[in-house]
Design a protein around this nucleic acid. Structure first.
Length: 433
RNA sequence: GUGGCCGUAGCUCAGCUGGUAGAGCACUGGAUUGUGGCUCCAGGUGUCGCGGGUUCGAACCCCGUCGGUCACCCCA
């Protein structure tokens, strides 16, 4: 196509699909509020240096996936993830001085120049949250459990929680070295990808899917051996807390993530493998106790996660939300349109979702339209009704029809829709939203 | 970014070994000049992703390109 089209990997979300998005966003906002998180909105554009420092200059994300550009002498980047910006805002506004523990959540677009596929786009949406100021494993466990509950509410099948501990930065560095020492003699036996990783990100070799790498890694040292006593205790308590919560999980000593900032607790939640295939990681997160210090702020322990909204949408078996119209006002003829506009406005003032056809369509097509919109009642305004100040109230469900004064019609329609629990104002909040 | 597969009407898809296009759904109008969901009738539905090439002739074969998708890489 030579026509104008959306940029590769960036999608429109049309009204037909927006119901699913809103359903997940609302469920998330509710979960966050139940756990005392407050929403934060940070810019989509940040100085490139923020991501280089926070995420790590040898990570794939920073090395080859960022949308960076120059603008009036500044080097800027469309955010590839949410944690760095949140940490920057936390430091910039000295939030640590205002409250001991800070719980923030966010929702919004992220940008990475990867090769697009299902559930993986260049502009994609993440739900995320951060806790600043709590070093203990208790909030780690709460966060993981919260996510499991959230995903269960969304009816995501085959949930799988993986946890690991990376220890502190020094542990991580020592482990990296140990791994390189173990694997260097076997360089020739590794996959080409892993030969490259050996120099860049050796930890990633651990979860390589190549059988050659899996053999080479089989008797490699595990990070568990290098954890110091505090790290080990932290991890032990996390597991004990999860056990107490009854949260299902498995320890995966090979779980490693590609962002450099993680320390100690690391976790990942997968689900809906049949629908998502290899991209079934729904949530990834972990502790980053040194990021605020690395960014030049006070050292504040922190933990956070991000979830891919598009993937949640694919993974969720929740039925799509139905958006119905309650009533349709059907004016017949030019002179009825004004009376119809007034009537429709009065209905809406009562919380009735109401549509009106102002094009001068015939009654037949207006009724068809009302039917396909799922409306319960149609209020017909023709010449004789106009003359009498009346309206014909047709109940599409009950197949009844009655002529009455308009103010009476207002009351009757409201009563009928409330009785059927259909109007916006009367509908109780659905569970899980 | 690497490799594989796919690309026909708004949607889901047919189209046999190359002979220049079909179905269902949806949409609009009518059968009922002011009465829906069912039924019947009629009707737009199209640069066969795009650009080259081979051929008398290409939706079909070849090359390129764009887009999608699967696996890898990486990640949410």
């Amino acid at each position: 196509m030579t026509q104008l089209q959306a940029v590769k990997g960036m999608n429109d979300v049309l009204p037909d699909e927006i119901g699913g998005w809103q359903r997940i966003e609302r469920a998330y906002a509710r979960t966050m509020s139940l756990h005392g998180f407050r929403e934060v909105r940070t810019p989509y554009v940040e100085p490139t240096g923020l991501f280089v420092r926070a995420i790590g200059d040898t990570t794939d994300v920073v090395e080859k996936e960022m949308y960076s550009f120059e603008h009036h002498g500044e080097t800027l980047t469309l955010r590839p993830e949410g944690t760095a910006g949140a940490a920057r805002a936390y430091i910039e506004h000295s939030v640590h001085a205002r409250e001991p523990v800070t719980r923030w959540w966010y929702s919004g677009a992220m940008f990475r120049g990867e090769r697009p596929a299902r559930g993986r786009y260049r502009q994609f949406y993440q739900l995320g949250a951060e806790i600043f100021g709590d070093a203990g494993p208790g909030c780690d466990a709460e966060m993981i459990d919260m996510l499991v509950v959230f995903l269960r509410d969304l009816v995501v099948p085959d949930l799988e929680v993986l946890v690991n501990s990376l220890g502190g930065p020094q542990t991580r560095a020592r482990y990296r070295e140990a791994l390189v020492q173990h694997l260097t003699p076997k360089t020739a036996e590794l996959s080409p990808d892993s030969q490259r990783r050996l120099g860049t990100n050796p930890l990633r070799i651990l979860d390589s899917k190549d059988p050659r790498d899996q053999v080479a890694v089989r008797d490699a040292p595990t990070i568990d051996d290098l954890l110091d006593d505090d790290d080990r205790e932290h991890f032990r308590k996390l597991r004990a807390h999860l056990d107490a919560l009854g949260t299902p999980y498995s320890v995966d000593p090979r779980l490693v993530r590609g962002l450099d900032y993680y320390t100690r607790t690391l976790f990942e939640i997968k689900g809906a493998h049949e629908k998502l295939g290899a991209g079934s990681t729904l949530v990834g997160g972990g502790r980053y106790d040194y990021m605020t210090a690395d960014l030049g702020g006070p050292q504040v322990p922190a933990i956070g996660f991000a979830a891919g909204l598009e993937r949640l949408l694919i993974a969720s078996d929740l039925p799509p939300a139905v958006t119905a119209t309650d009533a349709v006002v059907a004016p017949l003829g030019e002179s009825a349109i004004e009376a119809g506009l007034v009537l429709a406005r009065d209905l809406r003032a009562k919380g009735i979702r109401c549509e009106i056809d102002t094009r001068g369509s015939g009654l037949r097509s207006q009724l068809r339209r009302a039917n396909s919109l799922g409306a319960r009642v149609v209020l017909i305004l023709g010449e004789s009704e106009l003359a009498e100040g009346a309206v014909q109230v047709k109940d599409l469900d009950a197949h009844t029809e009655e002529r009455m004064a308009r103010d009476q019609a207002l009351r009757i329609v409201v009563d009928r829709l409330v009785a059927a629990s259909r109007s916006v104002d009367s509908r109780p909040p659905a569970p899980g939203t």
